[in-house]
Structure formats: C-alpha cells, structure tokens
Amino acid sequence: MRRRLSVLIGFLLRRLFFSLTGVIYTILALVYWAILFPPQQGTPDFDNYFLIIGAFGAGMTFLVTLSLASRANEAANYPLVVRLPSRVEYLTAVLLSALLGAGLLQLLVAGLALFRGPAALWPQILEVPPVWISVNVLTAVLALHASDFVTAGWSRVYVFGILAIFLFGQSSGSNVAAWLGARLNSFSVQLVQQGWFDLANSFNRAANWLSNQGGAQLENLLGFLFWPFRAINEAVIRGYFDANQALAPAVLLLYATILFMLAADLFANKDLDFVE
C-alpha cells in the first residue's frame, strides 16, 4: 500500500506543481511572505510568526486540497482507481498530497520569514509542528468535504450546515435562546387561553429556562466544540501551553479523524462519475 500511495502522491503533486495553479500558489506564498514578513522590517514577535504562518498554512491547505481533489476527480484517472484494492487509498493519497504540498509552501514561508525574523527558543519551536499539522489536517479534511470529489448527494450541505449552526450557536446562543424563550412564552399564554393549563405550564418553564441560564448553557455546549481553537490561540499569545491546552492539537486531530472517516465512507459508496 505504501508504494501505491507514494506513486499516487507523486503523480498528484507533479500534476499540481507543474500546472499554472501550482505556480500561482507558489507566487501567492512568496507574496504573503513579502507583505507580512518584509525582510527590511523584520518580524516583531514569535507569537505573530506562529499564528500568521499557521493561518497561512491552513488557508493554503484548503486551497491545495480543493485543487488536488478537483484533479483527482478527472476521468483520466479511471484506469488508476481500478488498479487500487480500495478506493480509500485514493482518497488517502489526495489528503496526504494536499498536506505535503501545502506543508512545503508553509515551510517555504516559515523558512523565509526566519530571515531577520524572530529569535525563537527550542521549546517554542517544538510547539509549532503539532499545532500547524493538526490545523492543516483538519482543514484538508474539511476541504475534501467541500469538494465534488467526496460529496455524495447533500453531504456537503449537511457537513457545512451543521458547522455553520455550531458557529452561529456558540457566538449568538444567548440571543437565540432569548428569542426562543419569548416565542415559547407567548405560545404558553395562548395555551392558557385555550384552557391547556398543564401544557402551558411546561412551555412556560422551558421559556423561563431559555431566558435565564439556557442561553449561556447553549453557548457553552456549542462553544465546547471550538475550544481547541481558542486554547491554541490563547496559548500561542501567552507564549506557552498549559497541560489542558496541550491537548488541543490532539482534539483537532480527533475531529479530523471523525470527518475523514465520514469522507471515506461517502467516497467508498458513491458513484465515481469523474469529470471529462
């Protein structure tokens, strides 16, 4: 399997980097470095370096994954897929190629930014790979779900719809809960007028809960999902990871694993109707 994967990764990366898209991505990386890390100015802080290049890596991983998934989805690849004992090998090759391709561009920017860049201690440098890699892996898997290559039916809508609900819920949970509480309250009043006292009481209790502590609990619940991002951000700015925050990259990898399993399941069972 390792040999088949290495053959596919070489093929996909060569297709990307020897194309106009690959050249544009390389230029984009250099432009990003020139704007955010101009050599004549130097980089002020290590935490900026850590976060800005991390964000660049995540963005580039998303773009590279979409590009590779689009190339993998071409009809010219039918004879290749037929040769594989499992379709998941093909999906894995796309994921690894994207991580490798985007990782190389990220390393390019990271290397260039060290020129007159921040002075970093070894413990700080050792904190970088787990964070960058975990964020990149999660981004790559999300990009796979966004691509036609993996999408089956409405799967893209479900995955990103649920993600959007979580994002919205963790930031506006209190407002939503208050609004919902007001609606339930007015509904319970109508039930009282109809003589449905027991049911009205239940709705009234639910409305009170939502209006008081419910919003905060909803925000906490949905916000828990995004805890690793906040933890990493806080730790990088503070300059070190505490025991809890050190788990954040592992949690991101767990999310990525779950999403990749879903992607593999979708890809293994869909009709491969590649684009001609």
């Binding site: 088949r4 053959v7 093929f11 297709r15 071409e74 010219a76 004879p79 290749l80 040769r83 001609e276």
Partner: peptide, 21 residues
C-alpha cells in the same frame, strides 16, 4: 474516452500504472 494526463510521457504513465499494480 481517451483521456490521459497529457503532461506525462507514455512510458512514465505506464510506469505509474505498473507501480499501482
């Protein structure tokens, strides 16, 4: 449909298929 990765050479393409086989 006769679609292939056009940027490759004939022997490179077949060597890739051999690698997958």
């Amino acid at each position: 449909r006769l679609l292939f990765p056009n940027e490759m050479r004939v022997h490179q393409y077949l060597e890739m298929i051999a690698g997958l086989s």
